[in-house]
Simulated assay, not measured.
Amino acid sequence: MTCTTLKIDRRGAVAWVWMNRPELHNAFDETLIAELTAAFTTLDDDPTVRVIVLAGEGRSFSAGADLNWMKRQGAAPPETNLADAQALAMLFRTISMCHTPTLARVHGAALGGGMGLVAACDICVASTQALFATSEVRLGIIPAAIGPYVVRAIGQRQAYRYFQTGERIDGARAREIGLAHEVVEPGALDAKVDDVVSALQAGGPLAQAAATSLIRAVAHGVIDEATVQDTASRIALLRATPEAKEGLEAFLQKRPAAWVPAKN
């Protein structure tokens, strides 16, 4: 891919996507939105990619929307304004629906849409210096496009507070409310990301995709007969696959499965 707002770094089976507008704290505009959407779509379709890590160059992960872009869209004709908002909403959906595991590496500000990117990813590893916020109400708008993903991450009760106050959330609080999985000192951030990436690569890629599909299917449903039958069908189909057979055989033989990267 040729990008003007991103840098994509392949490290073996791991793709690092770096937002690269450091002078603007990786704020969103139409170009960054389009390039992030295309990058995640392309990488998710690549069977050689096992994990996608999203990170930001410079001092911030992402400070959210470029306010000049927001003003420009607010003054645009209604159909243009709506189409732009739909493109933003599709970005978060694209990330959230990846079959490939996604991980946000957060080292600084992740505000507004930046917090939405974090919530759309499967996993968040953050620095103690990270700051999060759904600060849109302080600008007279709402966190609409990111709303479904942030509410999924932190729950309705916390969303009622932070969507309305726009308060800053530090790393410790982000972990407490479920937004961040791991929070470490800045110097340990990349080592912790590497630890989680290694753990992800120990799992079977087909099984991981099936696991995320399972979560989406059962997260808000009633545990009724249809759900029971659906879950039974999922495991029955999966354990008959070559990947499952290899995984079980490797465990019984006390060896790494074929998909686990060799240690240097």
Rank of each mutant, 00 (worst) to 15 (best):
L6Y: 05
K7S: 12
K7Q: 15
I8M: 02
R10K: 07
R11T: 13
A13W: 04
A13Y: 04
V14C: 03
A15D: 01
M19F: 03
P22D: 06
E30G: 15
T31K: 07
L32E: 02
A39H: 00
F40D: 00
F40S: 01
D44M: 06
D46A: 08
A55K: 00
G56E: 01
R59V: 11
F61I: 01
G64H: 03
A65F: 05
N68I: 08
N68K: 07
M70N: 11
M70P: 04
Q73G: 07
Q73N: 14
G74T: 14
A76S: 15
P77Y: 03
P78N: 09
T80I: 15
L82C: 05
A83V: 09
A85N: 13
A87H: 13
A87Q: 14
A89P: 10
R93V: 12
R93C: 09
C98A: 13
T100Y: 06
P101A: 08
P101Q: 08
P101S: 07
R105V: 01
R105D: 07
V106H: 06
G112Y: 04
G112D: 06
G116K: 00
S127T: 15
L131T: 11
F132S: 02
V137M: 10
V137D: 05
R138N: 14
A145D: 08
Y149D: 05
V151T: 09
V151W: 01
G155H: 08
Q156I: 12
Q158I: 09
A159V: 10
Y160W: 15
Y160R: 15
Y160E: 15
Y162R: 13
T165D: 04
G166Q: 03
E167Q: 13
I169R: 01
G171H: 13
A174C: 11
A180E: 03
H181L: 05
V184P: 08
G187K: 08
L189N: 08
V193P: 00
D194I: 10
D195F: 04
V196L: 10
V196F: 07
L200E: 03
Q201S: 09
A202N: 15
G203F: 14
A209C: 11
T212V: 12
I215N: 11
R216M: 09
G221H: 07
V222F: 12
V222E: 12
A226F: 01
T227G: 06
V228E: 11
Q229I: 05
Q229T: 06
D230C: 04
R234V: 01
A236F: 03
A236V: 01
A240M: 03
E243I: 00
L248W: 04
K254N: 11
P256G: 06
